[in-house]
Design a protein around this nucleic acid. Structure first.
Lengths: 338, 338
DNA sequence: TTATTTTATGCAACCAGTTTCATAAAATTG
DNA sequence: CAATTTTATGAAACTGGTTGCATAAAATAA
């Protein structure tokens, strides 16, 4: 395959001239430019990106690191959408994107070393779940651009991250229920060890207070994201002396279980009990009745993550930025009382 | 950041020596090796992968190209599983993986040029949907290693691909129904423009013949992968003078629609009508009754794609290989007659 | 017409590695 | 102990680009 030298020789110019043409330098006469471009086309010349990267001290590549555990625990197109959002921005900038799974074969440190110290990438987007103060210190020390997906916990220094506004989502969920005329609104949350679940519940509580509704601990429960758990918890709620007339579930799968319990109790959705779920997975449209959800725009989260990363790459002095993506209610049959 | 020269200087050796140590050359005394390794650690030295790639004439990188339209049309963790399988192999080999979406911003040719002629990658895994004879010819001409995910159509020369054995899946589906005692087994297939749907249907037909069952055209229909379509087609099947007592659906979403129609007709699943679906998505476990499926191992498909790619990279003369991944039945309640 | 500025291009060094070949030192052989 | 082989290392060329500096030619100014 043709190199810059072959092009230079064939066109009767020096390789500096060819290089200048590749890089759209203005100091080249039109005549020479046309001549060289013609030769480039003839020889099917494409600059070697490794050589370019070496000269330019930049790899024209960013990395997206993921944690397969996170991805699997979502079991929805969540991850792919984030990736797609990032990709859209990265490729439109003319860079490319390396993806790596941190749980794969190599140890975390090896991968980081390799991608970062090996100069293979100019920046990295990584999951908040792997962040810790030591890693932050290290990355900051070598001034390596990074953005986390999700707000990391327990990090002392300000860093760049993007996240879904889960607190807002929790508030919107409750307020939607109120607007549909529900009065006794229960909450079956996901595991509270996860930050996003905590945030969602806080949003729910805050909205209760804003609306002057008393917080009832017996209306709030927590479970793993399984159908069985949703079923079991919903059954308990129905058995209460004063059962709820609406329930917000932390997850589509929990909702499916809860719906089963409601159906078994011969109660009608949405008449007797309204139900709403976080996360807008394809399944929400498939169940009977279809499920009202809090939609999270993870594509947009990816776009913003990439944009922030490029901001840092372009200007290492840029102030850190935390970006929250708004949620919105996708109303379907399960909360439609009319 | 430290370069090979810094290490050489600090250790009082030449950079050739350092290079030999990086590459585990045996012609280095233990004494020198230890000394240099110590310096490397002290300086936190990691070889520059661009420079290595340039010298070695290999990028230590492969590309995974995807077609966002394909991915979206599956609307299941299908794609991510393939990617994860590929990634596992790639990283265990010490290479890294670039992902690019062919529908993104840049034109297809630009991306290919860039990744292939730009020497950025040593091989590429791509969707069969974008293959055509011209592209095959081009890649073969420059002897660039590639493997397609899915069997491509209309390609004249033998090439390497991996696919799910959809024909086998179709046979297994029918034979499972027979083994459960169902007699009149209908088939609601996905759109027949897609090869994998055609293969599945052929498998169904072949198994009919193998089992001496007459093929009834009125039992076979085709629809887009939507709930409404499944509902509509199932309703028609139920209205037949001699309705089927079992149905195989080409897709989980079609099945959901079909189940709705069966429920509305006050028929019992699996007693009156058995139902089975291709693709084992999370939803199969969530519906009532849970859905028997033909499971496809897309992770394994990714693993094999990567293995084949490396076989070609290691030995460009290797004979082309087509690899089919077996399907298997995941039995659940929807076909359980006992 | 000469002096000065501008424009276009080439030379050579550089990026950070790998590798061939030469060679000094050490080990083996006669 | 000298001759030969083996081993460990370095110098220099090479991978394919970019770029600062020098310079010849062209354009402008005096």
């Amino acid at each position: 395959m043709a190199s810059i030298n072959d092009v230079a020789k064939a066109a009767g110019v020096s390789k500096s001239t060819v290089s200048r043409i590749i890089n759209d330098s203005p100091a080249i006469s039109d005549e020479t430019r046309q001549k060289v471009l013609k030769v480039m086309k003839e020889l099917n010349y494409v600059p070697n990106s490794l050589a370019r990267g070496l000269s330019n001290q930049q790899a024209f590549t960013v990395a997206l690191l993921i944690n397969i555990k996170d991805v699997k625990s979502f079991s929805n197109p969540f991850f792919y959408e984030v990736m797609h959002g990032i990709e859209t921005v990265v490729y439109s900038r003319g860079l490319c994107m390396i993806t790596a799974n941190l749980e794969n074969t190599l140890k975390q440190n090896e991968i980081l070393n390799w991608l970062i110290y090996g100069k293979r990438t100019q920046g990295v987007i990584l999951p908040s779940s792997i962040m810790n103060n030591q890693l932050v210190r290290e990355l900051k020390k070598i001034r390596f651009p990074f953005v986390t997906i999700g707000e990391p916990e327990g990090i002392k220094e300000p860093i760049d991250w993007v996240d879904i506004n889960n607190f807002q989502g929790g508030m919107q969920a409750l307020e939607h229920m109120i607007s549909q005329g529900y009065k006794r609104i229960a909450y079956i949350g996901g595991e509270q060890v996860k930050t996003f679940n905590k945030k969602r519940l806080s949003g729910y509580k805050a909205a209760l207070e804003n609306n002057g509704i008393e917080y009832k601990p017996e209306y709030v429960c927590e479970g793993a994201a399984t159908k069985d758990e949703g079923y079991k918890l919903m059954k308990q709620l129905i058995k209460l002396p004063q059962p709820p007339d609406a329930v917000i579930c932390g997850d589509n799968v929990l909702s499916i279980g809860a719906m089963k319990a409601i159906n078994e109790a011969k109660l009608n959705i949405p008449k007797d009990i309204g139900i709403l779920s976080f996360d807008n997975m394809p399944i929400a449209d498939l169940v009977e009745p279809s499920l009202t959800t809090v939609d999270i725009d993870v594509f947009e989260m990816g776009v913003q993550a990439a944009n922030i990363l490029f901001k840092i790459i372009d200007n290492p002095e840029a102030r850190q930025q935390q970006s929250m993506i708004s949620t919105c209610i996708k109303m379907r049959e399960s909360t439609c009382r009319e």
